[in-house]
């Protein structure tokens, strides 16, 4: 692990990670300022047009203080960066004086639970079915059908699957109640059951939507591995076909399938957010939707920063850990 090759690799990944974060923060700084006028006034003017305003002078003063809007661009920028790195994401406009961090913190656990369970389930299902299809696929007709289904699911956007499931299970067959986007998590049984009930449909939707990609990816990886010399040798060794499929085929196809997670993470997150909106699930996606409606820019910005940071960190961690698992890279 302390080999020079690995250190160089680690440092380059680290550097790239820091660069991505810095660019995101810079973008979130610049974009609001591209609108004529200063960002707060712009937001407030739009709000006053929509007729929803409360404590406006206080908000403006608070922001001017916090972000030094009266000072020049560079000072603003540096103090902005300083604030963010200290974890201060600003103050909400619509829910003044609550801080953005507090608001996001109530929605965040919902999204984390939904996203992680759905991704894990769909990855496992998709990978295993894809492995079977890729290994035995040529003979069985039912795997052909599965492949077409997977392709279809891959093509259809997340929100369409979500709409169809919503329609099916809430409107047509009312197994589930219509959600209002309100939810709080505490440790009572009732609250936990409520959380489970709220998350089952969105989870189902995300699993169905993302499973297709895992299936197709694993299927093609295993089909490639199947043609390798060591598979033929495994057969010549008189190994059982299950041993060959799992220890020789599956295990070799698994590594690139795991790295596939990093590439897909951004895509799945976006899909999950839109799914939350369709189901009025009280997570980050729903919060984003509400904030956009209510023109609560600090919250929008806070969410963008948070998600970017999370996805970049997840990618960085996987990039760092992956070489440890592949014996071929481990030098």
């Amino acid at each position: 692990m302390s080999s020079p090759f690995f250190i160089k690799y680690f440092l380059s990944r680290l550097g790239f990670y820091i660069l991505t974060i810095w660019i995101t923060l810079t973008l979130t700084f610049i974009i609001p300022r591209l609108v004529p006028g200063d960002p707060i006034t712009a937001a407030l003017s739009m709000l006053s047009e929509a007729g929803a305003l409360r404590g406006s002078q206080e908000i403006v003063d608070e922001y001017k203080k916090l972000f030094g809007l009266d000072k020049d661009m560079m000072t603003q920028y540096l103090s902005y960066l300083g604030q963010i790195l200290r974890g201060n994401l600003g103050i909400s406009i619509t829910n003044f004086p609550s801080s953005v961090s507090t608001i996001i913190a109530t929605a965040l656990p919902w999204t984390i639970i939904l996203l992680s369970t759905s991704t894990i389930i769909s990855w496992i299902l998709g990978t295993f079915l894809g492995a079977l299809a890729g290994w035995r696929g040529i003979e069985k007709k039912r795997f052909e059908l599965l492949s077409v289904a997977a392709l279809l699911l891959y093509i259809i956007p997340y929100y369409i699957v979500a709409i169809l499931i919503l329609w099916l299970f809430i409107y047509t067959i009312p197994i589930f109640p219509r959600e209002t986007g309100y939810g709080s998590i505490n440790l009572t049984l009732e609250s936990i059951l409520d959380a489970l009930r709220k998350s089952s449909l969105p989870a189902l939707s995300i699993v169905i939507s993302s499973m297709g990609w895992w299936f197709l990816s694993m299927r093609s990886l295993i089909a490639t591995v199947k043609r390798e010399d060591f598979i033929l040798m495994a057969e010549a060794k008189g190994l059982k076909s299950s041993t060959i499929m799992w220890k020789y085929g599956f295990r070799n196809a698994l590594l690139p399938q795991i790295t596939g997670l990093t590439l897909a993470l951004g895509h799945i997150t976006a899909g999950a957010l839109v799914t939350e909106i369709i189901f009025a699930y009280p997570g980050i996606g729903w919060l984003l939707y509400q904030s956009i409606l209510q023109l609560d820019y600090p919250v929008i910005q806070g969410i963008v920063i948070l998600i970017t940071f999370t996805v970049a960190t997840a990618n960085f961690i996987v990039d760092t850990i992956y070489p440890l698992f592949d014996p071929r890279i481990r030098r």
């Binding site: 040798m233 010549a236 220890k247 295990r251 070799n252 014996p327």
Partner: peptide, 15 residues
């Protein structure tokens, strides 16, 4: 028993 030709890739890389 069998010994294959060109043994560069006849062993499982991850075992």
């Amino acid at each position: 028993a069998y010994v294959p030709q060109g043994s560069m890739n006849s062993l499982n890389p991850v075992m």
